[in-house]
């Protein structure tokens, strides 16, 4: 009995010691990246390419969302914290402050390209040509009751024809991402705000009431929050030809046999129109890099060189095959040199 309890104690001690060493001897031999689910499909391609062509291990890429990623990124310096974070929006001032509070001072910003946001419907129905103003009037909770927007009313529009007489008399039914999604943030900023600014009285409002007027979406069933999964929206659109969906361009690109994008301000969501900026709904994608880790984690410089190479993010690079819209040549050269020289982030 005595011996048995000694044995048990030894096993327990060993297990605890094992845990402790696992914790302390935690030197990492791979790059750890967190962040946006929109940038995830691109960063993972670079990571895979990097892992297969170099002597370094394949970086681990987590899909945590832009905000979640920056929070982890800014938690501190040390191998237990991520080295880079993907973001589908620019880092906020508050996040930079959080970073520096936790000792993360040197941050390098790398823009990797653009992502378009498409408003699309099934091929079985007619394609629409919309403007931000149409979309705002169709989707906002409160819309102007008079011409200049000085008076608001609950959204009365049932069909697209009510919004704009040039559009067909089709019931308004739009599936879109929930407020936690970066796609939603970008859509609101690029479409709703712009559509709303076409009313002079709203444009003159102070920031807070203006945002409330422009950015609150309808809750009467015309706008449906369909979850973060864009594939799900694609499937629902295929099943319901009357509905429209809001999602990332790469999903439209992969499903051109089933879906068609609505033209916005006359430009269809296509690779070329997004790249040259004539399609108005596109947003930049970023990767943020922790300078303090560059000399601690092996392969970070090489990984960044791979990401910022023409064969990855160039006009005909492998990232464009995955649906990334490349930056113009001049911008690419600028960010490529910024990354090489480890230029500090300036907001």
């Amino acid at each position: 009995m005595q011996r048995k309890s000694v044995l048990t104690a030894a096993v327990v001690a060993l297990a605890v010691a094992g845990l402790a060493t696992a914790a302390s001897a935690q030197s990492r031999d791979y790059i750890q990246i967190v962040g946006s689910s929109t940038v995830y499909p691109f960063t993972t391609v670079v990571a895979e390419q990097f892992g297969k062509t170099t002597k370094f291990k394949t970086p681990k890429v987590e899909s945590t969302g832009s905000g979640g990623g920056l929070k982890l990124f800014c938690a501190g310096v040390g191998v237990e914290h991520p080295d880079m974070t993907n973001s589908s929006r620019r880092i906020k001032k508050s996040e930079v402050e959080l970073c520096s509070k936790n000792g993360v001072r040197g941050i390098v910003e790398m823009k990797v390209g653009y992502d378009g946001i498409a408003v699309a419907n099934s091929k079985k129905a007619k394609a629409l040509s919309l403007t931000p103003r149409d979309l705002y009037l169709a989707l906002a909770k409160d819309v102007p009751a008079n011409a200049d927007g000085s008076k608001l009313q609950a959204n009365p529009y049932k069909t697209w024809k009510d919004v704009n007489p040039k559009l067909p008399a089709l019931k308004i039914e739009v599936l879109g991402p929930p407020p936690t999604s970066g796609t939603r943030d970008a859509f609101v900023e690029l479409v709703m705000d712009k559509g709303c600014a076409t009313f002079s009285a709203i444009k003159k409002m102070s920031k807070k009431p203006r945002r409330a007027a422009c950015r609150t979406m309808r809750e009467d069933g015309a706008f449906v929050e369909a979850g973060e999964n864009d594939n799900l929206i694609v499937q629902k659109l295929d099943a319901n030809p009357d509905a429209f969906g809001i999602f990332g361009f790469s999903f439209l690109d992969q499903n051109t046999d089933k879906l068609q994008g609505a033209a916005i301000n006359g430009a269809k969501p296509e690779f070329e129109t997004i790249a040259d900026g004539s399609y108005p709904v596109s947003r930049p994608l970023f990767v943020y890099i922790k300078k303090a880790h560059l000399d601690v984690i092996a392969g970070m410089r090489e990984f960044l060189a791979e990401y910022a190479s023409e064969k990855a993010w160039g006009d005909e690079g492998y990232l464009t095959d995955k649906g990334l819209i490349p930056m113009p040549k001049k911008e690419r050269a600028m960010f490529s040199s910024d990354v090489k020289n480890l230029k500090n982030l300036a907001l």
């Binding site: 696992a22 499909p41 990571a47 681990k60 987590e62 899909s63 973060e228 594939n231 990332g248 790469s250």
Partner: peptide, 28 residues
């Protein structure tokens, strides 16, 4: 997470089967 290398021990980075299904269903 996106983990390419097959994990060799309990401390290597890894995903699990249901997570893999979720990640694939989320790909375009």
């Amino acid at each position: 997470a996106f983990v390419v290398d097959v994990p060799q021990s309990v401390t290597d980075a890894a995903t699990a089967l249901p997570v893999q299904i979720f990640l694939w269903l989320d790909s375009p």
